[in-house]
Amino acid sequence: MNDLLTMSFFQNALIMGGILSVLFGLLSFFVVIRRMTFLGAGIAHTAFGGVALGVLLGVHPFLTSAVFCLVSALLIGRLVKRETMSYDTAIGIFFALAMALGALFIALKKAYTFDLSGYLFGNILGLNSIDLLVGAGILVLFIPFYFGFFQKLLFASFDDAVASTTGVKSDTLESVLLMFLALIIVVSIKMVGIILVSALVVLPASFGLLISRDYRRVVAASVAFTFVTITGGLFLSYFLDSPAGATMVVVGAIIYFMTMWIRKT
């Protein structure tokens, strides 16, 4: 165990796990209560197009996937608001389009050598100090936004139309929330992967809602759940010699369904 904790890749994974626990624990609350969970999955999948574009152009895939996710998040938000398209339809279109572009970009790069499965399912060995700095930077920006506007976001999530009649700029808040959703997904891709990251968007607050009907406790439980899921999954993956991202998702799903079962019995 002590050996494990001295390994730099595992230290990086633990630090990133701590950062992501707070980010996903907090973010998940608004994504779930606003019924935008499919949006998390959709935006994560659009990152695939960005990663492939980065590989094709020789640019760091983080930058191109961040651009892809941000543009997708804002365009989906705009289509839903302006064109009265449903979230499901808008996400379904962007999801498929970005994946298709990703496949095309990879095909154009004839001899690709990058770790495709690492991006799809996560690879904690790939985490470096720059990833940690970017994660910490997003955390520093996200915390003041989240707690400074928490009550206004809560109002807009509960009752968008009424919130706007009291001066709450719900459209702007939603756009900023979508931007953070995109950035947090991108920064977590190395750890959990494009396909598995949606579990971290959905499960934490869903778990919180299983154990409380008070938003303060739901948020606290959501953060605690994410921390246990990520760190538990990391340690377990080491001892089982299993992929870290997949192990985390399985740990989280087991905690969720066990809690649901205990609550019912």
């Binding site: 209560i33 009550q151 509960f158 009752d159 919130a163 009291t166 001066g167 938003y215």
Partner: peptide
């Protein structure tokens, strides 16, 4: 299912300002 109490709902109007 929204996780708010009756008082939380009333408080929204004051927090908004």
């Amino acid at each position: 299912n929204f996780p708010v109490s009756a008082r939380d709902v009333v408080a929204m109007a004051r927090f908004a300002q």
